[in-house]
């Protein structure tokens, strides 16, 4: 009972319930939704697909969770995904024999450096110049995709270097490799934020930046590194995306990914007004979005129409999180009882 009380007060319960309802729906209406098969030592099935396909959004959501906790937002991550994919693809090259132009590790490193630089640019605008985050990251949102397209000469680059496919398509111990990347990033972020004072400082900045500075804490530094980290996450996400399809399409890579990732964070219980953040909640949020997409696919609905359902879910969840709405519903029930 006590455990339930604690759980019901914790923020993670709402996203978990949402995910649970989705799963339950699938249990009844989607045949074989929960079936997992072992093929050539790899696990296959809808649930594995959800995890695998959700990985890029989960990675983005890790970085965005911290940014949103500072009462910021980073709408440039989708464009940065495109930059990451563009840079790595240019450096590996489209050699049909699969010989990379530069070593794959170097190409990946260079892509990540470019993305961290992009994140630092955002961080600089927000922390030192003092721009509103949505405006500061709007700049790279607009320009980033242009940069990605100019990098790839506005062409789709196909990759044939096999080892690079590991990130997005490979398996390790039966599970998709990308899941290990998510797990590693999540764990590292958890340790850095919760086993040091970073998490508390991030929340402090999100709640009251001025008071944070007055308490002798380098608030600007915290902001700066949150955006830089978000850039890094976008970079990693871009590598996974690029590896999954073995191509870099500056126009479509990471398209609308920022929206999915922001939604994941918000669904996970972190408020857009900053403050308390919930990394695991964001992961659950990303899974909700992915499960929804997969569910819709399973019904043979055109994938594009999935967006309608996604939108309706966002409305529903936003309403559930709205205190005004909950008060109204409660009021309606109260009135009905009186009437009865």
């Amino acid at each position: 009972m006590l455990a339930w009380k604690r759980l019901s007060r914790s923020k993670i319960i709402w996203p978990l319930i949402t995910l649970g309802i989705l799963m339950l729906f699938n249990l009844f209406f989607t045949p074989n939704f929960f079936r997992i098969e072992m093929l050539e030592g790899h696990l296959f099935g809808n649930l594995i697909d959800i995890l695998k396909n959700g990985a890029p959004i989960m990675i983005l959501a890790i970085g965005l969770t911290l940014v949103i906790a500072t009462h910021g937002i980073d709408i440039s991550v989708g464009s940065v995904v495109a930059i990451s994919a563009g840079v790595v693809a240019m450096l590996i090259g489209g050699d049909l024999a699969g010989n990379p132009k530069y070593p794959i590790a170097f190409a990946m490193g260079a892509a990540l450096v470019a993305c961290i630089a992009a994140g630092m640019w955002n961080g600089m605008l927000v922390s030192w110049i003092g721009m509103q985050p949505i405006i500061a990251t709007l700049i790279l949102f607009v320009a980033g995709r242009g940069i990605a397209m100019v990098t790839t000469n506005a062409m789709v680059i196909w990759l044939y270097a096999k080892p690079f496919a590991l990130l997005g398509q490979g398996y390790l111990f039966g599970l998709p490799f990308s899941l290990y990347i998510v797990a590693f990033l999540l764990l590292a972020t958890y340790l850095v934020t919760r086993r040091t004072a970073v998490g508390m400082f991030i929340e402090a900045v999100g709640i009251n930046p001025k008071a944070t500075r007055f308490a002798g804490i380098n608030a600007r530094g915290i902001l700066f590194w949150c955006y830089a980290f978000s850039g890094l996450c976008a970079g990693v996400s871009g590598l996974v995306v690029c590896s999954t399809v073995m191509s870099a399409d500056g126009n479509n890579a990471g398209n609308l990914a920022e929206l999915d990732a922001i939604l994941a964070v918000v669904l996970g219980g972190t408020s857009l007004n900053g403050g308390r953040f919930f990394l695991l909640g964001s992961m659950v949020g990303a899974l909700i979005i992915q499960t929804l997409t997969t569910t819709i696919y399973a019904f043979n609905v055109a994938p594009e129409i999935a967006q309608v359902v996604k939108a309706l879910v966002v409305y529903a969840v936003s309403l559930l999180q709205s205190e005004t709405f909950r008060a109204r519903v409660a009021g309606m029930f109260a009135r009905r009882e009186v009437a009865a």
């Binding site: 922001i262 967006q307 709205s322």
Partner: peptide, 24 residues
């Protein structure tokens, strides 16, 4: 307005909704 929700999120969902309705 009525439920005091962030415009960013609501119109973002509106972006999905309208785009999805196109395909409908």
């Amino acid at each position: 307005q009525t439920f005091n929700l962030p415009p960013f999120i609501i119109t973002l969902a509106g972006l999905y909704l309208a785009r999805g309705l196109c395909y409908v």
